[in-house]
Design a protein around this nucleic acid. Structure first.
Length: 648
RNA sequence: GCUGAUGUAGCUCAGCAGGUAGAGCACUUCCUUGGUAAGGAAGAGGUCAUGGGUUCAAGUCCCAUCAUCAGCUCCA
């Protein structure tokens, strides 16, 4: 909770997740004429906003809060861009121009498409506007008057925006002066004081977007831009974008020959030998962890009679995304989820309360017909493997089971170097099945598990699935992007639909609770994520090639063979580079393939039974006795270390 | 699915005023036997995404389809 003390000593409270911008917005318009200095939590002044007579936040004080100042620069820059677009395309109708994470956009309704060739023209106009250093001036109108004003303008989007503002007074911002008929826009503000305070900007891209995100509405043109306090920061941001591009798993997947996509199967990944090596290492580890946690593993068919999907409810809710095949007068569905198969396995015989909980894991291959426009490398595909598991247990066992899964999740993520994990608990939505008692019981069980683990979590009221509450795991990678990976979901629907039972100690039949859980989610997507997380430089245990043996000339090829065979025998994935290349070229190639270890072998090494090692990421080299090296690297692989342990 | 852009050798890309296709890397062969980020030479490799159309002539212009990319919408 953040307490902001206003000059009249009244206190306003804000949620601690509120941004400085939100605080400024909340206290600003009501005190339009007064210069305002807000104290936060008594003495703390890190959020200090001064608001001038135009309700603009003073730039001087905003400097003490870079986040706030950046927001204002970007929002103001959106106005400048809108004006520039109108100069280049006078028939353009403005819609809406907010800030977003790394910049801002403005939606415009315009029949001629804006192309990247137009960017420089628009940027040129923007430059002029910034140079003119015009002030942002606020004026207000009563709602009714504003509505008429906007209707006369003939821009229905602005009319609807004003209605959506739901306020008695509508504010406008003029870039300059009303007397000069300068550019103005419906806007709640605030802005920086003058256009000249925009340090550096760039138009980034153009894309389509529906008005209000509604696919039945007209498609508008969305022009993305970004702005910074100075040119240096803009340059740095553009550099970071380039770096992120280099990590793109689609690019690295091609460079390292891990996987491919073919025209014959849009959304269906082809895994190449090196990709499969990583895949199999991932699964080997995954199975070890699940064995330790007393899971059993099952496998259920990819295709099952359509009737099953009517019973499970998928046909009603999910058929648009399912593939079907007709065989012998019968219609089969390719499974989009594994749960019904799991239910059939459970139901194949009677169960006693003594068996519960039953933890049934399945690396299930599912197919979903995703819309063509959403496909994205391994992140969004039409065929993928889920690391699914279904836990059948009594209501009393939910908490223990959830605690168990949470521990497993954290253990597995950590092994992949993912330790920044956030949890979210989603509760009963408006449309749902099951009675209140079950919902309360399950939701409390999930909460108890989180509390027992002492984990902070975010609550998403009403965001659960219609069949039960859930916990989601969000993971941040090494460049700060967040991914939803794991999930634990209570399900009241399927046990009912499939009439699942167990026999109690009083010899009566009872419905088990079914927990769905996934840890990595889609293995395909997880593969993509770790490619980007490691930027292709996988830890040794995951690397498709762990060591490359590189003799300096043909004279040491024999020794190279010997070293290669010994490493292979020790279970190390090794390749031998006997190409007619100089050592420089061999090093370059191994570097490009992100080899964790290069062994450089010449007459010196051959004579002493040594290896000279270059570790990835370093240009230093070290010489080890061959057997020492083999011992060290096998240790590193077995411990699944994230870093090289050669010197430990 | 929608809007826009793109599609030329295995990869990265050039060619564009319409006149029957080019580079670097990779690949093959030969020379070179070289100690830390590309040694040299020669060679092979393309119905320019697919299908129509305009034209004496289309990789180049037009239309459709497919795929990819960006964004939107979607992701019980």
């Amino acid at each position: 909770m953040i307490k902001v003390t206003l000059p009249d000593n009244s206190v306003k409270e804000f949620d601690s997740s509120v941004s400085a911008y939100d605080v400024a917005m909340a206290i600003g318009p009501g005190l339009a004429k007064a210069a305002l200095a807000a104290k936060v939590n008594g003495d703390l002044c890190d959020i200090t906003a001064t608001i001038d007579s135009d309700c603009n936040l003073e730039f001087v004080t905003a400097k003490s809060d870079p986040e706030l100042s950046l927001e204002l620069i970007r929002h103001s820059c959106a106005h400048v861009m809108a004006e520039a677009i109108c100069r280049v395309f006078p028939e353009a109708k403005l819609v809406y121009g907010p800030t977003v994470e790394n910049g801002f956009f403005y939606d415009v309704d315009l029949d001629t498409p804006i192309t990247p060739d137009d960017f420089s023209k628009i940027e040129g106009e923007m430059k002029t506007i910034v140079k003119e250093d015009r002030p942002f001036v606020r004026y207000e109108m009563p709602f009714d008057q504003a509505l008429t004003y906007l209707e006369n303008e003939g821009n229905r989007y602005k009319v609807e925006n004003a209605k959506a503002a739901n306020s008695d007074v509508i504010s406008f911002y003029v870039t300059g002066s009303r007397d000069n008929s300068d550019f103005e826009d419906l806007c709640r503000g605030p802005h920086i004081a003058r256009t000249g305070q925009i340090g550096a900007f760039k138009i980034m891209s153009i894309a389509g977007a529906y008005f209000r995100g509604d696919a039945s509405e007209k498609m508008l043109q969305r022009v993305y831009g970004t702005a910074f306090a100075d040119k240096k920061e803009l340059k740095q941001y553009l550099f970071q974008l380039e770096e992120a591009k280099k990590r793109d798993h689609r690019t690295i997947g091609k460079q390292l020959d891990l996987f491919s996509f073919q025209e014959e199967g849009p959304g269906f990944a082809f895994y190449h030998p090196k990709g499969m090596t990583i895949w199999n290492e991932m699964l080997k580890y995954w199975r070890e962890e699940h064995y330790n946690d007393d899971y059993c593993e099952i496998s259920t068919p990819t295709m099952l009679n359509e009737k099953l999907w009517h019973q499970s409810g998928h046909w009603d809710n999910y058929k648009e995304n399912m593939y079907f095949v007709d065989i012998d007068e019968e219609r089969y569905a390719i499974k989009p989820m594994n749960c019904p198969g799991g239910c059939l396995v459970y139901k194949s015989r009677n169960h006693s309360y003594r068996e519960l909980p039953i933890r049934m894991a399945e690396l299930g291959l599912v197919h979903r017909h995703e819309a063509s426009g959403v496909l994205h490398g391994l992140f969004r595909v039409r065929r993928f493997t889920q690391d699914d598991a279904h836990v059948f247990c009594t209501p009393e066992q939910i908490t223990d089971e959830v605690v168990n899964v949470i521990d497993l999740v954290f253990r597995i993520y950590k092994t992949f170097g993912l330790s920044d994990v956030n949890l979210e608990l989603s509760t009963r939505p408006a449309k749902s099945i099951g009675d209140d008692k079950m919902w309360d019981l399950a939701t409390d069980a999930l909460k108890n598990a989180l509390e027992r683990k002492g984990i902070d979590y975010k609550l998403n009221p009403g965001d659960g699935a219609f069949y039960g509450p859930k916990i989601d795991f969000h993971v941040r990678d090494c460049i700060g992007r967040s991914w939803q990976l794991g999930t634990i979901q209570c399900d009241f629907a399927l046990p009912e639909r499939f009439d699942l039972n167990y026999v109690t100690n009083t010899n009566t039949e009872q419905r088990p609770v079914m927990l769905h859980r996934a840890i990595l989610g889609s293995l395909d997507r997880f593969f993509g994520i770790i490619i980007e997380h490691f930027a292709g430089s996988f830890p040794t245990w995951l690397s498709p090639e762990q060591v490359r043996v590189m003799p300096i000339s043909e004279k040491t090829n024999d020794y190279g063979q010997e070293v290669y065979q010994l490493l292979k025998k020790a279970g190390v994935r090794t390749t031998l580079d006997l190409a007619n290349d100089k050592i420089n070229a061999k090093i370059k190639k191994a570097y490009e393939q992100r080899l964790p270890y290069m062994l450089i072998l010449g007459p010196n090494e051959a004579e002493n039974n040594n290896v000279t090692v270059r570790v990835r990421g370093s240009q230093q080299q070290q010489t080890f006795a061959l057997h020492d090296f083999i011992q060290k690297i096998t240790c590193e692989i077995q411990s699944r270390s994230l870093e090289s342990t050669l010197n430990k």
